[in-house]
């Protein structure tokens, strides 16, 4: 559903990412690792079209990203659930409205999705906090809210950047279970994380591939994971 072919990216100076190829097909499950500053977030931004590759091609849902207009990009993002590394909410709106925001911007009636909204809130354990605003949440609560928002439109692809960075182990497992469940429904999932325990736990449940960015290139992680 998202395919990178020989993609390079540079923020201006030396290339940060070089000749990366990666295919997120339906039902695939990837973990993306690499040292801090290696370009994980950048790679994700290339996938959800916040950045345009400086070399190679990015194909999303069968279309070349270079040929997409701004409205096309918006349409693509409705099919990609994004958990941003620093979450990014509308701080003046309650959590419930933030999670429902993709419904509103996509012009879908919230009534029809009330059940999903409540279910998601329960899953991520934010039902009691639904009326708080994001700045009133803890770091972990914000991450859970970001995940719930990423899932509300039931996207085909889920890109999560450090979704468990601030979560305790129990809550991390709970979110992982949710993602594994969605993966079984055919969604493509990519999680950027440093959390090796989480990766091990996931590999016990699904056929997850682990890729690592090292000096600008992608490599498959060894069997030790």
């Amino acid at each position: 559903m998202i395919e990178l072919r020989d993609v390079s990216y540079s923020y201006g100076g030396e290339a940060l990412l070089r000749d990366l190829s990666l295919d997120l097909g339906p039902g695939s499950f990837h973990f993306l690792t690499g040292p801090s500053g290696s370009g994980k977030t950048t790679l994700l931004k290339l996938m959800y079209l916040e950045l345009a590759a400086t070399g190679g091609t990015v194909e999303v849902f069968g279309r070349d990203a270079a040929g997409l207009g701004r409205d096309d990009i918006a349409m693509v993002r409705r099919r990609i659930g994004i958990v941003h590394q620093d979450c990014r909410f509308l701080d003046h709106l309650p959590v419930r409205d933030n999670i429902a925001l993709p419904l509103d911007t996509a012009g879908q009636e919230r009534q029809g999705h009330q059940g999903e909204l409540d279910e998601l809130l329960s899953w991520v354990g934010l039902r009691p906090r639904a009326d708080a605003t994001p700045p009133e949440l803890s770091g972990g609560e914000r991450q859970r809210a970001a995940l719930a928002r990423a899932l509300i439109l039931s996207p085909d692809v889920i890109l999560a950047d450090e979704p468990t960075g601030n979560l305790d182990w129990e809550m991390s497992l709970r979110l992982l279970t949710l993602l594994v469940e969605l993966n079984r429904l055919g969604k493509a999932i990519l999680i950027a994380t440093h959390d090796l325990n989480l990766i091990r736990q996931a590999k016990a449940q699904v056929a997850a591939r682990v890729i690592r960015i090292r000096s600008g290139r992608l490599e498959m992680a060894g069997a030790d994971l």
């Binding site: 959800y48 918006a74 349409m75 993002r77 909410f89 925001l101 996509a106």
Partner: peptide
């Protein structure tokens, strides 16, 4: 600017 960034991130069209 933040708000606009978030709206685009979740798939809002420019017109919205």
């Amino acid at each position: 600017a933040q708000v606009i960034g978030v709206l685009r991130l979740v798939g809002a069209r420019d017109a919205y």
